[in-house]
Design a protein around this nucleic acid. Sequence first.
DNA 1: TCGATATCAGAAAGCGCTTTCATAAACAGG
DNA 2: CCTGTTTATGAAAGCGCTTTCTGATATCGA
Lengths: 341, 341
Amino acid sequence: MKKKSTIYDVAKIAGVSPSTISRVMNTPEIVAEDTRQKVMNAVKELTYIPNMMAASMPRRRTNYIGLIIPDITNIFFSNLVRGVQDVCEKHGYSVLVVNSDDSQEKEGRYLKLLYSRRVDGVILTAAGYREEGFSKEELSLLKKMNIVLIDREINGMTTPIVKVNNFGGAYSAVKYLLTMGHKKIMYLAGIEGTKTNQEREKGYLVALREAHINWKKELAADFRLDTAYQKIIQYWPQLKNSDKLPTAIFASNDLMAIGALKAFAQLKVRVPEDISIIGFDNISFSDCTYPPLTTIAQPTYLMGQKAVETLLKVIDKKKIKKSVELETELIERDSVSRWEV
Amino acid sequence: MKKKSTIYDVAKIAGVSPSTISRVMNTPEIVAEDTRQKVMNAVKELTYIPNMMAASMPRRRTNYIGLIIPDITNIFFSNLVRGVQDVCEKHGYSVLVVNSDDSQEKEGRYLKLLYSRRVDGVILTAAGYREEGFSKEELSLLKKMNIVLIDREINGMTTPIVKVNNFGGAYSAVKYLLTMGHKKIMYLAGIEGTKTNQEREKGYLVALREAHINWKKELAADFRLDTAYQKIIQYWPQLKNSDKLPTAIFASNDLMAIGALKAFAQLKVRVPEDISIIGFDNISFSDCTYPPLTTIAQPTYLMGQKAVETLLKVIDKKKIKKSVELETELIERDSVSRWEV
DNA sequence: TCGATATCAGAAAGCGCTTTCATAAACAGG
DNA sequence: CCTGTTTATGAAAGCGCTTTCTGATATCGA
């Protein structure tokens, strides 16, 4: 590996002081035309590229931000990550992504890592939903960092957040099912502890209540495709031939809806003839399923963008809205059909 | 935001020198039991967490590695990323992921960024496939960095690489189609410039040649779902009723196979009755399609792991294998059926 | 008991930058 | 032509660590 040149090497060649090199790299307009030229030539000669790492010490800025998500492998989050990356890059930031696997313990460890790396801020998809879920140490850490939450709120904390209107989305999903004539609607639930799931559940419940429908049923799962698949495979036989057999399912996310689709294909239950399914998220595969999945779209990429924008403001101590809430949109495809009694 | 404490603050409280603090943080075994205790207490009192950024200067190690992939949003790569992240973390490294979107220009920019961040090494999924594709500056950069390629080779460069046996995988895919009785097999191609696509194409061609089959047809695409979908929608009508109508398709990756599935669903062409499809990759959705996709599995996560392992060796100047090649595996599902003449 | 050796901790230089402060030169205005 | 400004550059301190070198004790064998 070739030796890396420093600002001193360039200074020597250009015949100026290191300060001047620093100036032409950062604020070229304040240095005289001819010296700037000399410096540029020396820079080119050595193919000198400044060491940002070193620069970040006196600057007290690393120009890194941390991003804690459950799992990059989850296509919902990888979309969000891309949104974050793209706007970060535009502002000269890089992003350090870590996966919490929805574990509070890992989340804590990573918070510590990000702090030790002195990222300028972190965007956090919290695994827990209550302030009490955090340890003393984590809380003290959070105080030392610029944080903005994304997707999932934490009760009792005033941290800025960008999220989607989960309640509204869920509400309109169930409402849609209702208008399609369904009276027995099951909720395929996500991770119980998350605010996201709680809000969507509430949307489900409220929509039913407003329609004066008492029939309700929840199947507990965890946002994961396989879990949903297995739960359906496991419980459907019991449900069948009972009055607990729903005619429609509102899945708390698309991954689980797809898991359900897979299960039903295997069980020879026809979608949407025998059962209708609506999801949440509109991930990029949901129009490739069979049948194409009707779902509530959320602007994942946009969320990532917004999160960065507010984080950068926090970092620069500008005014921000404490909470930006994005709206969802119903995408009608073919997994829901009218239910005639 | 609370003030961040430094090694000096801890030193003052513990009543020892900063060097000692550094020692207990890094090599606690070489400091006496009682001083270590004093220090630990001071550390706890201040909730001191060392500044890795600062440490990386005298160490001349950032403990970052860079990862350049086409697109994190592509589930194939997000899996690979996870493999990279997981083993990096185990070794105290963090990873900085950037998306090249298969553009050589972006790739160059990011290479420069990673260098300026002084990552200890980079794992690169090259956009181009020839050394000449790189500019002078990039080449000089590459010389200054520890690089290992992943997934895609670059002609004319001796950089270590971890990849999958693309030729073998493609060969066995086509062979499988052949044994199922297919004689008219089309290749749905990936990005032309990539080594990956070239190797898979070669596998296709060689398998046909060995079977003394002259019928061949390629449909150009770019590894993306939508492109494949559109190409099929666009060309199928022309193909139909001509002798150019294949009975089977070997898609260069699953994403495109899924795009094809989507197109055929729309065109009312039945899979696998009217046309068989086999993919490549075995991404996590390929068992959720309709019908479940027969494909050539590659160990994506493992590739990420292996890449890091060899990169870490390169960084530590240990001996390495110049090339590790992983094997593929045929996954039989339902998108291919026997073709009776 | 004494010198040789091992153990432990501090001083100080250095990592590659930025930035404040100081100064010299160039420029105006009267 | 002199003073007051402005402009352009350099010197030097500092960012928060690591690590080498050095010296002071403690430990041991004879």
